[in-house]
């Protein structure tokens, strides 16, 4: 099974799960996190159970997890008493950081202590990371989005790079950030935007990502 950690309201994620149904993909939602059936022993994470798409499943049956959200927010926990939602959301996020970090299977992107899907960096932090990785930053990109290239790094594969230098820059930034999946917006050889949750509507990107998720960790 491949679990996609995302909101039920995330149409891109639900479409991805449908597209990957033959590969055993299923949505791991906030509602699942608040359901009976989770068992996590930090000393033996592989022996536990998870709840995915409403079903308790052995952790050992998870081949990979794709994380598509930085956090669970209180507002989406409609089944929890309003007064308890903020507390429960904090608990769920803390639980997910511990669980995802301990999983023996592939997790893309792996969580950090402040986000479930890779570093929770703002623009300035990405700029600093780019500078340290030796990647140029473009401060003044054109308004026309069509003038920008969005390069997607997916494990060892780079998609949609206009040239080898752009591919190399995107890979260096991904390595520096410690992520396997990254969208890097580029203009004129410089980076002007970064996302740890790239647009996955493209069939080829979906296929490349699925292949990466199926590889052993």
């Amino acid at each position: 099974m491949i679990a996609v950690l995302a909101s039920r309201l995330d149409q891109e994620a639900t479409a991805l799960v449908a597209a990957w149904s033959a590969a055993g993909a299923a949505l791991l939602s906030a509602e699942d996190l608040c359901s009976p059936g989770w068992i996590f022993d930090p000393g033996d994470p592989a022996a536990g159970t998870a709840v995915v798409a409403g079903q308790a499943v052995p952790v050992a049956s998870l081949r990979a997890v794709l994380t598509r959200r930085p956090a669970v927010v209180a507002e989406e926990l409609g089944a929890i008493a309003a007064a308890d939602r903020s507390y429960v959301a904090a608990e769920l996020n803390a639980f997910m950081v511990g669980w995802l970090s301990a999983l023996p299977c592939r997790v893309v992107n792996r969580p950090t202590t402040r986000s479930l899907c890779g570093p929770a960096w703002n623009r300035l932090q990405w700029q600093a990371a780019a500078a340290r990785a030796g990647v140029a930053w473009c401060d003044d990109p054109p308004d026309d989005p069509a003038a920008l290239h969005t390069v997607v790094v997916c494990g060892d594969i780079v998609r949609c790079a206009p040239d080898a230098d752009a591919a190399d820059a995107a890979c260096r930034l991904a390595r520096h950030a410690g992520v396997e999946l990254l969208a890097v917006q580029m203009f004129g050889g410089g980076v002007c935007g970064v996302s740890v949750a790239p647009d996955l509507r493209d069939d080829t990107t979906q296929a490349v990502l699925l292949d990466a998720l199926r590889r052993p960790r």
């Binding site: 996590f40 930090p42 000393g43 996020n93 803390a94 639980f95 950081v97 511990g98 669980w99 970090s101 301990a102 950090t112 202590t113 402040r114």
Partner: peptide, 18 residues
């Protein structure tokens, strides 16, 4: 703050301690 955030997940921090 990045280093302090490990304390926000007790099971995560427990794995580091172990």
């Amino acid at each position: 703050p990045e280093a302090m955030a490990a304390n926000n997940s007790k099971p995560y921090q427990l794995a580091l301690i172990a």
